[in-house]
Nucleic acid binder design. Structure first.
Lengths: 296, 296
DNA sequence: GAACATGATTTCATATTTGGAATTAATGAT
DNA sequence: ATCATTAATTCCAAATATGAAATCATGTTC
C-alpha cells in the first residue's frame, strides 16, 4: 500500500496521472489502476477525475499533506543507502584449503590484500570440508565439485595430480615400470583420493586403480612431507609439489601417467546475495586463474 | 519496493520470517519471496538465513537503522489519517429537482441539516438535468432512471402522477367521463411527460395517450399554478399536488386512472468513492423514504 | 462545428505474484 | 542417535496485476 501512496504523492506533484506516469516510467493504465486501488483501500476519493483538469478532493489534500514529507524522506534514504551499501570496506570471511592457500595460491591472497586494503580478509584455512553455512563464510575456494544444492559454484581451473617419490626411495626400492608394479611399493594416500583414475594421454589409455595404502593421512601437506622423507609414492596435486620437483627434492614416477585433475571452484551459498566484497574476490580469483595460472 | 522495506522492518522487529508472517497475516512463502525480492533489488543480502537462528548482515543492520524510524512514522500517519478522513465535517454538494425539494421533500432537507449540523449542505436545485460531472456535485436526487453508464443510481421510491383540475374549470367545461373525453379539454403538459401511460388498477387496464397539449411548460411548479388558475387539466406528481387536493384547491379527474410512476433515485458518479458525508445523505434519504414517505 | 491533441479509463491477453502444500534444514528434547 | 517441532524455502495451480491498444472525455485550434 505504501508504494501506492508514493505514487499518489508523485501524481499530485506532477499535477496529473499522465505526467506522473511519464516520470515514473509506468503505463498510464497502471497509474490509474493503482490510484483506484489506493482510493478503494482507504475508502475515499483522493483526486477529482476530469480529463485535462486536475484537482484534489478535501481528503486528497489531507492525505497529500500527511504523506508528502514522509515519501520524500524515504526516497532520500533510498538514494543514500544505495551508495553506502556498495562501499567495499568491511570484513570478508573466506574458506579455503590450507595446502594450496599456503602454497600455490599464497601470492593470490597477498595480491588481493594489497589491491583491496580496506577489505578485512578473514581467511579460514582448513583441510576438512567445513560447512559454509555453519562457519558463516561469505565465499569459499574448494577442490572438487560440491554436491550440495545449497551451494553455487564456479569453476576456476584445474590442478594436475602426479605420482611422486624421492630419488632415494626409488634407488632403494626400484622404479616401477607400469601401474601394476605400483602394488609392490609403499603407497601413501590422502582421504580425498581413495581411488586413482589414471590416464595416459599419449597412449589414450585410462585405468582405475584401487591402491592398498600403507599410510593414509587427511592432510596433503603431511603426505608430502612423508614422501620427502623417502617413505613411499603418492599421488599429489602439482600445486603442492611443483616447486619440490623443480628443486629435485621429488621426482615424477611413471611420468606418462597422470592422476585425476582436481578442479578448483569458487563456492558460495545459494539464495545468498554476495556482498560487494565477496563479488570482488570472486572476480579477482577468476582473473588470477585466467591470467597468472596456467593449470590445464 | 517500499512495501517490501516495511515488511523487512517487521521481520527484524519480530526476529524471524515466521513470526513476522503471523503478525502481518501473510503466508510464510510470501514473506520469504518478498524479502528475496527486496534483497535482489538492492543487490545485498540483508538477513542470514538459518532455521531457528536469526541474524542481520552488516548491510541488513544498516538498512534497518535507516528505515525503521520512517516505517514507524508511516504507520502512525496511516492510523491517524484513517480517523481523520472519516470525520463528517465539511461541505456536501447535492443536485435535486426544485419542485419536489421545495415541496414534498423540504422536511427531509430540514431534517438532514438538523441531524448533521457539521455538514455544510450545498443544495443546487434545478428543473433541468444538469450534469453531475460539470456541476461538481457529490450526489444527486433524480427523477427517472439515468441512462448514463457514468452514473450509479439507487431507487428510493416512486411518485404517483394523477390527473387534476380545479372544480371551477370542471364546472364550466364539464367533467370528462373517460380518457377519450380528455381530448375535448385543454391539456397542460410538462416536457418530462409528453406521453401519458395511464393505468386503471381496478379494471386492470392500460392505455397510452398522446395528448395534444394546449400549453407546454418545462416547469412543474408553473404547470401547477396554471391548473390552479382554471386553465386546464394536467398530469402531475402527487408530491406536487397532494396538499392542494387536501385543501380542495384542486380535484382529481378520472380518479380510477393514474399516470406513470415517477421513480426517485439517488445518483452519483461511477468510479467515484462517496465521501463519508455523501454516504451519510444517501443512507438518510433511503431511510427517510422507507419510514416517512409512503409513495407506492 | 469539426478536427486534433492530450488526459484518463477500460478491455483483454499475458505476465507475475500469491498462497497452500510439500519439502528441506536446524534445533531441542529424549 | 533419534524424533518432534519449528523455521525457511520451493513447487505449482490459481489469483491478481500489468501494459498495449482501444475507447472515452475535454480543451484548443482552425
Amino acid at each position: 500500500m505504501f508504494d501506492d501512496i508514493v505514487l499518489f504523492v508523485h501524481i499530485v506533484q506532477k499535477q496529473g496521472l499522465a505526467s506522473a506516469a511519464k516520470k515514473l516510467d509506468l503505463p498510464a493504465a497502471t497509474v490509474t489502476r493503482r490510484l483506484q486501488r489506493l482510493e478503494t483501500s482507504i475508502g475515499h476519493q483522493l483526486i477529482h477525475r476530469s480529463a485535462r483538469q486536475f484537482g484534489l478532493t478535501q481528503e486528497g489534500e489531507s492525505f497529500y499533506q500527511s504523506y508528502a514529507g514522509l515519501v520524500e524522506q524515504f526516497e532520500q534514504t533510498r538514494q543514500q543507502l544505495s551508495g553506502e551499501l556498495n562501499i567495499l570496506a568491511g570484513s570478508l570471511k573466506v574458506l579455503a584449503p590450507t595446502n594450496i592457500s599456503t602454497g600455490l595460491l599464497q601470492p593470490m591472497w597477498s595480491g588481493f590484500i594489497k589491491t583491496y586494503p580496506d577489505i578485512k580478509l578473514e581467511l579460514m584455512l582448513s583441510n576438512s570440508v567445513d560447512s559454509m553455512l555453519s562457519s558463516g563464510a561469505d565465499i569459499a575456494l574448494r577442490i572438487g565439485p560440491q554436491e550440495s544444492s545449497m551451494l553455487y559454484q564456479k569453476r576456476l581451473g584445474s590442478l594436475q595430480t602426479v605420482l611422486v617419490a624421492t630419488s632415494e626411495y626409488l634407488a632403494i626400492q626400484g622404479e616401477p615400470k607400469s601401474l601394476e608394479e605400483l602394488e609392490l611399493h609403499r603407497l601413501i594416500g590422502t582421504n580425498t583420493l581413495l581411488s586413482w583414475s589414471m590416464s595416459n594421454v599419449m597412449a589414450s589409455k585410462k585405468q582405475e586403480l584401487r591402491p592398498r595404502f600403507s599410510t593414509l593421512v587427511n592432510d596433503v601437506n603431511m603426505v608430502t612431507q612423508l614422501v620427502c622423507d623417502d617413505l613411499g609414492i603418492s599421488l599429489l596435486p602439482m600445486s603442492e609439489v611443483s616447486h619440490l620437483i623443480k628443486s629435485r627434492v621429488l621426482v615424477r614416477v611413471l611420468q606418462a601417467w597422470q592422476g585425476p585433475n582436481r578442479d578448483l571452484y569458487t563456492v558460495w551459498p545459494s539464495g545468498k546475495l554476495l556482498s560487494a566484497r565477496a563479488k570482488c574476490l570472486k572476480v579477482y580469483m577468476q582473473e588470477y586463474f585466467e591470467n597468472t595460472m596456467i593449470l590445464d
